[in-house]
Every structure is written in C-alpha cells, then in structure tokens.
C-alpha cells in the first residue's frame, strides 16, 4: 500500500467486521442448544412424565418455569422431553432421506439416460406434491405412530438434496482430474473412492443438517393434526394439540412455550447448517 499520510480513502471502507466470526459463534450456540436438550432430557428422567395432581394448571413460576398442565406435569421438563423426541425423529428421518437422495443421485448419474429421466421425473413429482397431504397418506397407510412419522418424513424430503447431489456428481464427472484419472486406467471404483467421496461428503453433511428443520417442523405438524407420534408421548405436536382445550380458558403458557422452544431448536439447526456450509467450502462461501 502507498504511504498512508499522503493518501485518503476515496470510497469509505473503514474497519471491516469479520462476519465469519459471527457465523461460527452462532454455530457453536446452536450446537450447545442441542446439547442442552439432550443432557436436560436425560437429567429430567421421569420428571414431567409422572403426573402430580397437587400442582395442576399452574402458571409459570420459579418452581415451574413453563407452568404445569392439567395432570400437573412440569411443562419445562415436558418440553425438553418433547424436543428430544423431535431430535430423535429428525435425526433418523433426515438420515434416511439423505440415504435415499444419495442412492437416487448415483442412480441418475451412472445408470444411463433413462435412469436420469426417471429420477428427474420422481424429483419433479415429489416436489410438485403438497407435502402435508403426502405425509398424511403415508402416515395413514402405516397406521400412525412414531415409525409412521419417521417413514413419512424420510420419504418426502429427499428431492432437493437429490437434485443438488446429482448436479455435483455430474460436475465432478466432467472435471479434468477425473478424466485424467480414468485415462491413467484407474477403475470407476478407485475414482469413486478417491475423487467423488471427498467432494460429496461435505455436501451430504450440509444437506443432512439443513434437512433437519424441515423434518422437525413436518413431524410436529403431522403429530399436531393427529397422524403422528402417539398421544401418550410428550411430543411437541401432542403438547400443543392438548393445549388447544385449555387456551380459551386462559392457560396461555401451555401453548406458548413448547412452540417457542421448537422454533429455537429449528434455529439451532439452521445456525449449524450455515456454519458447516462455511467450513465445507470456505473459499466459495460469501459470508
């Protein structure tokens, strides 16, 4: 740079804030939020599951942060249990969905033109369908319950990731290093292990984490309308649908806190997803 004393800024670019520090900090906050849910649920054990009829429908207080419900359950403990359930369903469903996406993307890119057309049609079809209706149908077919929700969510959330992975594979396939590798007589198996996997794994991870919020929200919605997790379990959707009966009587805390906590959980995953995206590809990421 030139001598600072002789020059003056023409366009004002003063101190430049490093936005990435904020992104990584948010990622860490998101991860700790999830840790709190897991540890909290273990620590509470049966608290919030066993009824306590001496403390029914109490408003929020220091003893019961989120109040209590009609059975005297502590709503804070119940919400934490519910979030852990959401996490569990989210992890399994999102992982299954990612596996489907990977399978279809590989099918589309390696098994010829017709396979590609078929996968494209499937992606378009699944994206064109109203998600919740499909979820209801699948859950109906399986007779409801936790397993039905997991299958329903897993089966409806793969299209976007399939599309991304397919494009990614096609791009690597035509990259020079792969073509060179093939010309040196390496097998597709070798190329797959040494070139495709290292490129696809970060994409898969980011895709997986970004699937979580959708999976969790859809699970909660499905459970809320009665097609999801069994009414005996403390799922967030169940807590909220139970609260409907008491809202008009002014028991607002039953509806407010479980939902708010769910929003925070989803935001935690968004933050982690953004951080991972940055870490996976620091050169390309703009923020």
């Amino acid at each position: 740079m030139t001598d600072a004393a002789l020059t003056r800024p023409v366009t004002g670019v003063p101190v430049r804030r490093n936005k990435r520090i904020a992104t990584i900090a948010a990622t860490c906050a998101g991860a700790s939020g999830i840790a709190v849910v897991v540890v909290g649920s273990l620590a509470f054990g049966n608290f919030g599951i066993e009824p306590d009829f001496s403390a029914r429908l109490l408003p929020p207080s220091l003893a019961h942060w989120f109040g209590t419900d009609q059975f005297g359950h502590d709503m804070f403990a119940r919400t934490i249990h519910g979030l852990k359930l959401s996490l569990w369903v989210g992890v399994v469903a999102a992982t299954l969905s990612t596996l489907i996406a990977v399978g279809l993307a590989i099918l589309a890119t390696t098994c010829g033109r017709w396979a590609d057309i078929l996968v494209s049609f499937l992606v378009d079809a699944a994206m064109g369908l109203p998600h919740l209706v499909l979820l209801i149908l699948i859950s109906f077919a399986l007779g409801g319950g936790t397993h039905a929700v997991i299958v329903a969510v897993a089966v409806t959330h793969w299209p976007r990731l399939t599309r991304i992975l397919r494009a990614e594979i096609l791009q690597i396939r035509h990259a020079e290093f792969v073509i060179a590798s093939r010309q040196f007589g390496k097998s597709w198996w070798y190329v797959g292990q040494h070139h495709f996997l290292p490129h696809l794994v970060p994409q898969m991870l980011v895709g997986l984490v970004l699937l979580f919020p959708h999976a969790i929200l859809h699970e909660a919605g499905l459970t809320f309308i009665g097609f999801g997790i069994e009414p005996t379990k403390p799922a967030i959707g169940i807590l909220l649908s139970d609260s409907m009966r008491y809202l008009t009587a002014g028991k607002w805390w039953l509806g407010l806190f479980p939902g708010l906590s769910l929003v925070l959980l989803v935001l935690c995953f968004d933050a982690i997803g953004n951080g991972l995206r940055l870490l996976a590809d620091p050169r390309q990421a703009q923020t």
Partner: peptide
C-alpha cells in the same frame, strides 16, 4: 423472515388465537 421460516404454522396460529381471541 428467518425466524418465520422456522416457525410451525399451527403454533403461530395458536399464538394469534391466544393474543387476539382470548387475550
């Protein structure tokens, strides 16, 4: 927009109900 995109629709409806109809 980010927060709304992470909000379950039915919970938003519940909050509106609690605030405007009940409260």
């Amino acid at each position: 927009a980010y927060v709304l995109a992470s909000t379950p629709t039915f919970w938003l409806a519940i909050v509106l109900l609690v605030v405007f109809s009940v409260g």
